[in-house]
Write a protein that binds this DNA or RNA. Sequence first.
DNA 1: TATGTTTGCCAACGGCTGTTGACATCGACG
DNA 2: CGTCGATGTCAACAGCCGTTGGCAAACATA
Lengths: 191, 191
Amino acid sequence: MTDTAPTVRRSDATRAAILRAARERFAADGYDRATIRAIAADARIDPSMVMRYYGSKEGLFAAAAEFDLRLPDLAAVPVERVGETLVRHFLDRWEGDERMAALLRTATTNPSAADRMRSIFADQLAATVADVVPDRAEAPWRAGLVAGQMLGLALTRYVLRLAPVVEIEPAELVGWLAPTIQRYLRGTGPG
Amino acid sequence: MTDTAPTVRRSDATRAAILRAARERFAADGYDRATIRAIAADARIDPSMVMRYYGSKEGLFAAAAEFDLRLPDLAAVPVERVGETLVRHFLDRWEGDERMAALLRTATTNPSAADRMRSIFADQLAATVADVVPDRAEAPWRAGLVAGQMLGLALTRYVLRLAPVVEIEPAELVGWLAPTIQRYLRGTGPG
DNA sequence: TATGTTTGCCAACGGCTGTTGACATCGACG
DNA sequence: CGTCGATGTCAACAGCCGTTGGCAAACATA
């Protein structure tokens, strides 16, 4: 019994090594400063292999920074705990994964990465949040406020690495941010 | 009556033109993608003039992105309004000034800009905040939480330009964020 | 064994970058 | 006038970048 489709190629190990090195470099240095040559050196292969397997630097980044929030279904959680659920979910998703840092470092200067960021946080998040917001028409800007708080956390903790923010335990972080998110989602606002 | 010191040089106009062009380019493109040649072209002078007047690209950026938060003295405002005061101050300071975007776009990839950001938000802010926090020892991490929220706003509004966040009026933004900052500064926290 | 494909390395290309030094021009001053 | 410093232009350097095409070795298939 032989495989009819090449489900496993001999080069899969190389592809994986490139991807791993690319994630580290993009996360640490951002898109522009992470060079194909450096990534190839980390993966111990020739730069031309990167081109063969991923087409271009943009293609490599797209593969390395692919990122789905995998947002939970908020309709399934008690409405007074949606804030806590969301904060905990983001932290679970980000801790120990370098892709968020890579995406954030790149999105500040690379237009296509910024677009991806916008579609993730303005569209995906707004759609998820719409189920739990008092008025569905308010979903966009409520999601925007949530994105501001959560991306600010990601920025200070994973990218800028402000010492006091890095040192706070995840559980404590949830305790402080959850009420904020809860209010942005459900609060009646100023006035 | 002649000036003994050259208080006004004939090249001041050029220096100013370079600085203005540099601020725009750095804010729009970030440090790496903003080239000296492009800045010089905007300022309608030769790239070598940039080197003569600012020494290097790093020196130019240091001059163009110099930024002081000019934080208010929080001890002088009613303690129940420190959050609102702080949020309003940040917005006043950032709206219509491109330096924050330039600094933010650069700090994500340039180590020295990241250092500047850290010193501004971890040190300056923590020092200001210490006057108003329940326990001075808590100033660092409380300032960290505040930095997270405020930098997240700057990121989504001035850098990523998430449409819903851009469209919110400053006054309304103050209304939503002030309670958050107030709690990060004065709240008793989770538990 | 012979043949075709996959995997990898090597050398090079064209382009853009920050930076430098030589040279022209202008204004002020003796 | 002549001198000198300030201001500005021009051309070039050396280095790094993404990307390309050719060629060798390993492998699969017959």
